[in-house]
Every structure is written in structure tokens, then in C-alpha cells.
Simulated scan of single mutants.
Amino acid sequence: MKISSPRRRQFLAGSAAALAAAVLLTGCGPAAQNPNAAGSASVAKELTIDAPSGPGSGYDQTARALEKALKGEKLSDKIEVRNTQGAGGTVALSQFVQKSGTKDLMLGGLSLVGATITNSAPNKLSDLTPVSRLIGEYEVIVVPAASPYKTLKEFLDALKTKPGSNPIAIGNQGGIDHIWGGKLVQDAGVKPTDVNFVTFSGGGEALVALLGNKVAAGIAGYGEFADQVEAGKLRILAVSSDKPLDLAPDAPTVVSAGYPDAVLVNWRGIFAPPGVSDADRKALSDVFSTLTQSNTWKETLKTNGWSDQYLDSDKFAEDLKTQQSSTQEILTTLGLA
């Protein structure tokens, strides 16, 4: 399975989108002169993006892709990526909710929604300021190349016999990996709480466990295992999509493997601290809107196998309410909440 190489970055100089971003960042247009939009002219010039997990994780990869793309499109001058690990991202959330202003941003997603529920966290993502929903990533379940399990059915049939005999590496308790793993084994007739799900704080640690045969399988976003799959060290049993992925067209989908109810996509978006003004919230949302329309970002999606899940700030806030409710329902059904 070959992974597409990124094409040459193309800038949007001269386009209406780039002009709008320039107005925001330079303060030379009406937004900078509007007293109700004080501070919005430079909301993205200097940023810190908090990835609520360890190096190599899906959040970390997304943060670093944003750093590269924002700089490439000249939408920001200076960006620092910071990793904050612990409790499925709820440690990062508890720290971030104390921040203010627009210089600090944080990534969040369906995985963190689940972690806040499972960990009975005092804060939830809706306590922050939703800026833009950005991407979706499909999950994969992989085994080491030497594994005796060639298909998803073979692996799940083995779990039926001895549910705790084949440990499965996941990102965090109650996160997207756990949710999808629970759905998979439940569809196969196995009680999710009987399965030995082993949590790791980052994709790098899970990868070491897989390659060292410390676990029988691993579940994560496709991008976390892509290099090792291409190198032939890991084999994909299934992806959580209903159609083959462009970057892994030969990998079975859960539908083709016989588990259609296990289709699931993980979304990730960007958040600002609580209390950000409407003017600054809109200015930040406009910056990321400009980014998502660029060829640079479209190539980023293609290279990483991510789907475009963009929503602006207002629509993102509404969707987050629905996601919170549906995730609570899923976790309760699976015995994880």
C-alpha cells in the first residue's frame, strides 16, 4: 500500500481568500479599524497549539500539520506545538480551560468527548470556544506482519473463544479507539468489558508494543500506523469506513469484512479558551476557513488520508452538542460510561 507523496505547495496569493486573511493579520482593513473587533487583526500571528496527547498521536500529527500549513500559507508568523498528556486529553483540557485570549489554541475531537465522559471530567469541550471543525480520520485495526490472524473475522472469532487472550492497544480509556473497538467486538458477539484493551498515551508507545509483540492488535487513526503498514511491518485487518481509503485501497473496510454497524469517523477541530469575544472568535474562524480552502491544506488532507470535515465556528458549536449526546449514549451502551 503506497502512500501518496505531497505535491508542491501552491500559495493563494492574489485570491480573495488570501486577501481576507491578509486583512485579518496585518490590520490594514475594516476589521482592524472596527472598535468592536479590537485585537482581532493579529489573532493568528503568534500561536501555541496544544495537542492533548503524546508525540506521534493523531492529535500531535494534526497539530504539526496545522503548524506547517499555516506557516506555508503565511497565515501565521510563529507557531509552537505543545503536547500535554494524561487521562485521554482531559488533563490538557483542565489546564486549557484556565487560559484566556487568542494566542493559545487546543485541538479536540470525538476521542476527547468520549474521554471526558468516561473519566467523569469536571470540564468538557463545550466549555471552550469552538473555532473550526477541520478533519475526519478513519480508524484502523492492525496486527504485526507475523500475526496468525489474516482477517478481521479470524481475530474476532478468537476473541469469542477467549476474550482476554488477545490484548488490543488503544489510545486512551473511553476515547475513539476504545469506542470503535467496543463497537467491533460487540458486533462480533463479544462483551466489550471482557476484552483486554490496553491504553497508551501516544501512538509511538502503542507502536512499540505492537512491534514487540506485547499486544496482539492495535487500534488508532490510519495516519498513526501508515508508515509501518507501508514498510510491511503491520497488516491492516480493517478500516472503519464504508468505502476503501484512497491511501490504502487494498485494506478491507468493516463493511466488506461483514461488520457494517462498526462504521465510524473521528473528527478533530480547533478550540480557543473560554470567554473569547465574538469578534476574535469570528476572526480565528475566518483564518482557518481560509486555510481549509488552500491547495496546501487539500494536499495535507490527501497525504494524511484525512477527510474534509470543516465547519465554521457557529455550526461547530451546534454539532458539538449533538456529538456530546450521541457519544454519551454509545459509551453507556458499551458499558464504558
Results as ranks from 00 to 15, higher is better:
Thr253Gln: 11
Gly275Cys: 05
Leu207Thr: 12
Arg133Lys: 15
Leu264Lys: 10
Lys99Gly: 00
Leu134Pro: 12
His178Ser: 05
Ala17Leu: 05
Phe271Trp: 11
Asp278Phe: 01
Ser289Cys: 07
Arg133Leu: 11
Ala217Asn: 11
Leu184Gln: 08
Leu107Asn: 13
Asn295Arg: 09
Leu112Phe: 09
Phe288His: 14
Gly109Phe: 12
Ala248Asp: 10
Phe271Glu: 09
Leu125Asp: 09
Val23Cys: 04
Glu154Gln: 14
Asp227Cys: 00
Ala158Phe: 10
Leu125Val: 14
Pro6Gly: 12
Gly39Val: 11
Glu137Gly: 11
Ala13Met: 05
Leu19Pro: 00
Leu284Met: 04
Asn172Trp: 04
Asp242Glu: 14
Asp261His: 08
Val81Cys: 10
Asn196Ala: 15
Thr193Ile: 03
Gly258Phe: 09
Pro144Thr: 01
Ser256Thr: 13
Ala16Tyr: 03
Pro167Trp: 07
Pro6Val: 14
Leu24Arg: 09
Gly56Phe: 05
Leu47Val: 12
Asp187Val: 01
Gly223Leu: 05
Gly305Tyr: 04
Gln95Met: 06
Gly212Asp: 02
Asn34Cys: 11
Ala37Asn: 00
Ile236Val: 10
Arg64Ile: 13
Ile179Ser: 00
Glu299Lys: 08
Pro274Phe: 02
Ser5Trp: 08
Gly72Cys: 14
Gln95Pro: 03
Ala169Ser: 08
Trp180Pro: 01
Thr90Tyr: 13
Gly221Glu: 04
Val239Asp: 07
Pro144Val: 02
Thr102Glu: 06
Gly182Leu: 10
Lys302Arg: 15
Lys150Thr: 12
Thr62Cys: 14
Thr161Met: 09
Gly14Leu: 00
Val142Glu: 08
Gln173Gly: 12
Ser313Arg: 04
Ala20Gln: 10
Val185Met: 03
Glu205Leu: 13
Ala283Thr: 01
Thr48Tyr: 03
Leu301Gly: 12
Pro192Arg: 06
Ala231Phe: 02
Asp187Gly: 10
Ser15Leu: 03
Gly189Asp: 06
Val254Asp: 00
Ser132Lys: 09
Leu301Asp: 06
Gln328Phe: 10
Gly269Asn: 09
Leu334Trp: 03
Ala226Phe: 05
Ser256Asn: 07
Gly108Ala: 08
Ser5Phe: 12
Leu320Gly: 07
Asn213Arg: 12
Ser76Ala: 03
Glu224Leu: 00
Thr322Gly: 10
Val140Ile: 10
Gly54Cys: 09
Gly89Thr: 10
Val239Thr: 14
Ala51Ser: 12
Arg235Ala: 03
Ile79Arg: 06
Val239Gln: 09
Gly114Arg: 03
Ala145Asn: 05
Lys191Asn: 15
Ser5Gln: 15
Ser5Ile: 14
Glu230Val: 03
Gly56Met: 08
Gly258Cys: 00
